[in-house]
Design a protein around this nucleic acid. Structure first.
Lengths: 211, 211
DNA sequence: AGAAACATACCAACCAGTCGGTATGCTGTA
DNA sequence: TACAGCATACCGACTGGTTGGTATGTTTCT
């Protein structure tokens, strides 16, 4: 869809970095052009406005992260429960390097744009919800396997809950200037999902003194 | 500390509303003054800079929300576990009205300011961590009461996890333009905390078909 | 009186977006 | 094959408006 190495692609990649580090409103078009190594003429050739770039960046984010997670190793597990836990362990494992490099572009943008920029809000929602939908299928299968099809929660709500925990973990990582607390929050989420699907494995191995 | 009705107070309250709706960078000093009904002279009389206002707003937010939650009814429960669950139920109950009115000022600000504005980051961290610290004490007591003092998690990490879930729930509420999913995420958190402290009450009452 | 609490006018820098122009490559046709 | 016709990709100076911040004067409170 977007040619690699093109000005358009370079601008979108520049937006990934700058918006995650500074936020959307604080990132100017000139700054974007500078980071991408293109001119303002190129910017407004490819995008009608700054908001248009934001929508395109959210969509490009969906593609890039979609491919990234599709290629991750946790999909190899034959058991859907193992794939869900594998996904969460993978999310924890990639909390590396500067905060701006592991946080979520669309989570950052929607925070600023949800009210005044409906098109950006929609693109961010589509990105988050689309990502959750992939996890939802594994959760649904795990529910069937565990015989908990009539629980008081749905596969969709649990999938979206994992995204809430991740987004919230990113905010704590930003507030605390490091990923440690975010990792512990994902640990809690892994413990929760395990308690839902495999409670018997928790009592003896993770919770320690709890009988 | 801040006299009610003063220009300073009006500016801080205006910041609560505008920053939560638009973000920090997108909110201008003129806009703040307009919403507060004061002039720019008053603004720069009380605050050295826009960043100074942001730090003061984060601190004022700590005071206002501190008093708000201190006055909430869940503290009346004699059992610390009930207080923790009561806190979470209260957080769910106040997800009412426009998104900007139930979301968190400091969670929004730290997202934009963590990298370029260290003073704002610190004030937001202090606000979140201070709020979590109050919950941490109830969690600690509940752990002692339930005999799970040597679990593989700490009262602090669980308290901060609740804040991660709440902050993430706010992002989902913004992305989906409504509080429904946020409420379901808090439901998952309540279920998790209950599974940690009172697993026997879940299997029969909440999880339905799960035996 | 003296300080604190404003108000008004102003400024240089920066902002998103525009516009006239150029370079390059593709496509249809004689 | 040669060339006209046209679209895409890009350039960078420019503009009108907004930005955070300042300088200076006036009012209000103790």
């Amino acid at each position: 869809m977007v040619r690699a190495g093109s000005s358009r692609e370079k601008l979108l990649e520049a937006a990934f970095g700058l918006v995650r580090a500074q936020g959307y409103a604080a990132t100017s078009v000139d700054e974007l052009c500078g980071a991408a190594g293109v001119t303002k003429g190129a910017f407004f050739h490819h995008f009608r406005s700054k908001d248009d770039l934001a929508v395109a960046a959210a969509n490009h984010w969906s593609e890039v992260t979609g491919a990234f997670f599709a290629a991750a190793p946790y999909h190899a597990h034959p058991d859907p429960f193992d794939r869900v836990i594998g996904y969460l362990a993978f999310r924890k494992a990639i909390l590396q390097g500067p905060v701006a490099q592991f946080t979520c572009l669309v989570g950052t943008m929607v925070q600023e744009a949800y009210d005044a920029h409906p098109a950006i809000r929609e693109a961010c929602d589509a990105s988050i919800s689309g990502h959750a939908a992939k996890l939802e299928e594994d959760i649904r299968q795990a529910m069937v396997n565990s015989g908990i099809a009539d629980a008081h929660w749905t596969a969709r709500s649990l999938a979206l809950h994992t995204q809430a925990v991740l987004q919230g973990a990113f905010i704590l990582a930003k507030a605390k200037a490091g990923p440690e607390i975010a990792a512990e929050s994902i640990d809690h989420l892994i413990r929760y999902v395990t308690l839902l699907f495999r409670p018997e494995t928790i009592r003896t191995t993770i919770m320690g003194g709890r009988q």
